[in-house]
């Protein structure tokens, strides 16, 4: 079994806050986001995140991987402070955005500071038109109508597809168009960082590819950093430079995207390219659990 997986499991559980993996590498620029050993509890009793640490370098794309229920969405909502509505709260650890503790800030304050989430399932406003959806993203801005209009054009230049649909009610557009609208809506807030939750969910492969290409473009041209939660490990590791793998509310492995892609365990469990006979998801869970027990 790989050493990386074990050491990380240990750091995740350590009582003292460890420097999050990924920032120790001196070639990585200063992090825009740093999550230190956070614990999240839902409804006061359900412990879901059991010490998650991660960091996103300024201008980077970092993937947060893991199966359904691993805790990806919870991690993103903890960062953007959207847990409240789900009766969840961060009970331990710290979250630093641009070096400042953001734990007690409201979501709208965070958006103003440049950190915005694109929620799982797109969550467009169904009864608003595509363009109205985009404009809601500019709610926190105070720089005037002209600047907002200019950014609307910018969004349309990245997503020409939704420009054609600008007058349509978002609820009547396709899944791909809704995902583009959701990302465009986030862009309208002029973010420094986007927390993107499962953009590939329920979309055809070529649409997924199109959206990831746009993410790459936005990252390159607009300098937006991304924390990308995905179950589509293959696709996410193609575009991200670094990845964390969550399991059961813990980071079990992390590393450069390239090394994760080549890691035998990742291949076996997440990329579905195991040597020999393929294991079903249930087997994998079982196997992992036993492995941890033995370890």
């Amino acid at each position: 079994m790989p050493a990386a997986a074990d050491t990380d499991r240990n750091t995740g559980e350590a009582a003292v806050t460890p420097p999050p993996a990924g920032v120790t590498d001196s070639t990585v620029p200063a992090p825009i986001l740093r999550v230190n050993n956070i614990e999240v509890v839902y409804s006061h009793v359900i412990l879901v995140l059991k010490g998650v640490s991660l960091s996103v370098p300024k201008g980077g794309i970092v993937a947060l991987l893991g199966a359904n229920g691993a805790g990806k969405t919870t991690t993103l909502k903890a960062i953007s402070n959207l847990l409240h509505a789900e009766r969840g709260e961060v009970t331990k650890g710290s979250i630093l955005f641009e070096g400042e503790e953001v734990h007690s800030r409201s979501p709208s304050d965070l958006v103003t500071r440049g950190c915005i989430q694109v929620m799982e399932g797109r969550r467009c406003f169904a009864h608003l038109t595509v363009e109205e959806n985009l404009l809601t993203g500019a709610f926190t801005r105070k720089d005037g109508k002209a600047a907002v209009a200019a950014d609307l054009d910018l969004v349309y230049s990245y997503f020409p597809r939704i420009k054609e649909r600008r007058k349509a009610l978002a609820g009547y557009t396709s899944g791909g168009e809704q995902q583009m609208t959701a990302v465009g809506r986030a862009l309208m807030s002029r973010p420094k960082m986007i927390l993107l939750d499962e953009p590939s969910m329920g979309l055809a492969p070529q649409i997924v590819e199109e959206i990831f290409e746009i993410v790459k473009n936005l990252n390159g041209k607009e300098g937006v950093s991304f924390l990308l939660a995905e179950q589509n490990t293959n696709m996410a590791l193609k575009y991200a430079s670094y990845g964390y793998i969550l399991e059961n509310g813990r980071v079990v492995m992390d590393g450069e995207a390239k090394s994760l892609r080549e890691n035998e365990d990742v291949k076996e469990f997440y990329l579905g390219v195991a040597e020999g006979k393929r294991k079903s998801f249930r087997d994998v869970k079982h196997y992992k659990r036993r492995k941890r027990w033995l370890a």
Binding site: S108, F125, A126, T140
Partner: peptide, 13 residues
């Protein structure tokens, strides 16, 4: 927007 989806509205600030 809030009437449609208040959590999504919150997420955009």
């Amino acid at each position: 927007a809030v009437a449609d989806d208040h959590q999504a509205a919150q997420s955009v600030g």
